[in-house]
Simulated scan of single mutants.
Amino acid sequence: MRSPYVWGIIYFFMGCLFVYFAIQQNTRTGQWDFFTIALMALAAYDFMVSYRYFTFKKRVKRKNKE
């Protein structure tokens, strides 16, 4: 199993990709449609999961230190 740090990086990268796709969709259509909002929601979810993995890594590191 990979470390939480690696999973955090993967989810952060996926969130960045979804933000990029949402920006491209918004500039193509010029308005906020359902697909753009759905992409931004997926990006927000990926950033949240990434943050949780990074904080989990800190907790594991602190626990192992004790």
Rank of each mutant, 00 (worst) to 15 (best):
Y11I: 01
D46L: 07
A41M: 10
W32G: 06
G15R: 01
Q31M: 14
F56C: 12
A43K: 03
R28A: 05
D46P: 00
V6E: 06
C16K: 05
G15H: 01
F21N: 09
M40F: 10
W32C: 05
T29A: 01
D33G: 09
A44C: 11
F18E: 08
R59F: 08
F47Q: 01
T55C: 06
I10N: 02
L39H: 09
R59G: 03
S50V: 02
K57S: 12
Q25T: 14
F47T: 02
A22R: 05
F56I: 14
F56A: 08
V19K: 02
A22V: 10
R62V: 15
W32N: 10
F34P: 01
Y11K: 06
A44W: 07
Y51T: 14
V19Q: 02
F35K: 14
V49I: 15
Q25P: 01
A43F: 05
Q31N: 13
F35H: 08
Y11M: 04
I9K: 08
A22L: 02
R52H: 13
V60R: 07
S50N: 06
G8R: 00
K57M: 11
M14D: 08
L42I: 10
V49G: 00
G8A: 03
W7P: 04
R28E: 02
K58E: 15
G30K: 05
F21Y: 14
T27Y: 09
K61C: 04
W7D: 02
Y20C: 07
A22F: 03
F12H: 04
W7A: 11
N26R: 15
F18S: 04
D46V: 07
I37T: 00
F35S: 12
V19G: 01
I9L: 11
Y20F: 09
A22I: 11
K57T: 13
I9S: 02
F13D: 08
Q25K: 13
W32V: 10
F35R: 12
I9C: 03
F35A: 14
Y45D: 05
L17V: 06
N26V: 12
